[in-house]
Nucleic acid binder design. Sequence first.
DNA 1: TATGAATGAGATTTCATTCAT
DNA 2: AATGAATGAAATCTCATTCAT
Lengths: 201, 201, 201, 201
Amino acid sequence: MGKLDANKKQKETSLLDTAFNLFTTKGLNKTSISEIVSNAGVAKGTFYLYFKDKYDLRNRLISHKSSQLFKQAISQMKSSDMQHSFEGDIIFVIDNIINQLTENKATLNFISKNLSWGVFKNALTTKTNEKDVDFADVYNMIIENAPNTVKDPEIMVFMIIELVSSTCYSAILYSEPCDIGTLKPYLYHNIKHILHDHIDY
Amino acid sequence: MGKLDANKKQKETSLLDTAFNLFTTKGLNKTSISEIVSNAGVAKGTFYLYFKDKYDLRNRLISHKSSQLFKQAISQMKSSDMQHSFEGDIIFVIDNIINQLTENKATLNFISKNLSWGVFKNALTTKTNEKDVDFADVYNMIIENAPNTVKDPEIMVFMIIELVSSTCYSAILYSEPCDIGTLKPYLYHNIKHILHDHIDY
Amino acid sequence: MGKLDANKKQKETSLLDTAFNLFTTKGLNKTSISEIVSNAGVAKGTFYLYFKDKYDLRNRLISHKSSQLFKQAISQMKSSDMQHSFEGDIIFVIDNIINQLTENKATLNFISKNLSWGVFKNALTTKTNEKDVDFADVYNMIIENAPNTVKDPEIMVFMIIELVSSTCYSAILYSEPCDIGTLKPYLYHNIKHILHDHIDY
Amino acid sequence: MGKLDANKKQKETSLLDTAFNLFTTKGLNKTSISEIVSNAGVAKGTFYLYFKDKYDLRNRLISHKSSQLFKQAISQMKSSDMQHSFEGDIIFVIDNIINQLTENKATLNFISKNLSWGVFKNALTTKTNEKDVDFADVYNMIIENAPNTVKDPEIMVFMIIELVSSTCYSAILYSEPCDIGTLKPYLYHNIKHILHDHIDY
DNA sequence: TATGAATGAGATTTCATTCAT
DNA sequence: AATGAATGAAATCTCATTCAT
């Protein structure tokens, strides 16, 4: 990467980072492009060299941040010495992501309910940034590693993702109706029910 | 109610109705107060006699629309000749609400993921409009009618509401990952699992 | 005064008092009629039964507050046992008013530079509220009590009033360029010069 | 100065000039920003590139206009062939400013009672626009040129400025209580008294 | 007299986007 | 590629005044 490319990449990264900070502290609506560029230290016109508008930038951020969560979870799963049962793997990944979000509430608040089926499905089918996780691989890995045929695999993954993302949002950010520690046993227990409903052991 | 009071109520209702239509067709962000008042046929200043701002109006609408869903579901449950098993009642109410939302996608889109724990909890604890459902009654009815002691009743209700609202959003509006008809058996099956995890039969 | 009249007078007084408080704390421009009436506890329409607009109310207040200052100063002068030299009387009244304003900075700030020739002249020629001082009497008293013919008496009174009101404003409120105590000797000395320029002793 | 900078300065100047005309004809309160920009021929947003609000613009105008008065008076004093007695210089400057204001009643009305100690003091201590008069120099020149030590020089200057500005306002604009020609002898006579009270000859 | 809901013109301010440099 | 002054439409919100009750 040449010096010019590096310089160029740096402006884009600066815009993304600054925008993430503003979005998580002030919210998307209350954050203006003027604020983003002035905080990022670039000129107003420069914004439009990298992004179509504020929403384009937001979508790029959601994909990237979601990807990072899965990337780290899968990487840690692979490097762990745990025995790799199917159910265990699923729970391990979910638990790891929940822990990341508990540590990093800004990210949780930002992708919050956006880490839902829409984004997941979109990430499954669109070409990702080279450094981001390819969700299609993740998905296939899950199905192929199942001990038996999975009935309606998409519905299964869908229900798990929706259940986890919506309950964790409230529990981690507001401890409502209980803190995340209290919720986990119930949550993981129910995830196992969902798995069993779709897979014959 | 005097003539003046009736007139006053009518203006407020007109603003609420018009705003709901605009919010569901154009979205909250793209709807301006100018549009709301001009469509409602009232003066701009009148808006500020009834609402603090656009978001105040939205919150009032969410409470009201959510309430209506429960109100109708409970009323129909009571008037039905079904035998009233506990599980059956729960499923009946959920199914009824899902059917209402399937018929009325605008409402679903509007309250969408807002019919979540935050709203429910808020509705449980704040005084409602006299004509709206008192959620506290609904909640107590659920707990008291349980066949046995309910362990962590709030967590149970929380998980059910989050699971239902987030999965139905995608299924009803986008048939993703499947249509609502396909989803229902899996969903209701899982709800029963949740109930069983919290109640000893 | 009948009960109804008393009631009526009370609303007007309430509006005047409330407005004075708001004008002195927030300023005339930033005070709206809505605020005045809501703080005064009367309906919006009622305001227009007593005052033409905000500026009408302000003028009434200025006249009234200025009058009170003179009224008290003259009353105290008359009741004092001092020997009544002409110069002494003038200085006594001025000193008394300055002391009142030092104690009551809100009033000073309000009438501030309005206690100028315009208001004074206006108060000289317009019918005052029955309970307020008649400035014409004050003026004539000054001229008639002079030990000798006064040359251009209006100019003399004018210069004294302008000098006193504009210097005291800054000295009392901001101690700029010095506090009122330091200013007084210079000020009174100069007032004597003005008197001597217009009166042959 | 580049083409862009010149263009920029021109917009600002246009806004200042237009605002001054409107302020002096309609008054500050009755002049809206919309009017200013439409008369100045710039877009509404442009206003906010140069001024925080209407009052920021007004303050900039007051400083500038006051400075211009002194600048011209001092320049003419220096270029005159008069013998430079101390008293003579003071009276010359005052007389010159009064004459300027008599010719230019709009300016008088605008800066009116604002050409008072507050503005003067502020102008003494804050950095002025490069083209404006440095009031600190004026002040020092006055003190240093005095024939003898000046006792409480600030109080002396303060009293003169306040006396002149408040009496001239009424005399020039309304010929109340007399026209400026009639007032001058009395005024200048009294100024000499003030000077003598502070300086031993 | 007294009320206060309703008005709606208009004020202030924001901000995404463009374009000449 | 980068800049940032300029734009001007549009958004929010205020508030003096009216008038039916």
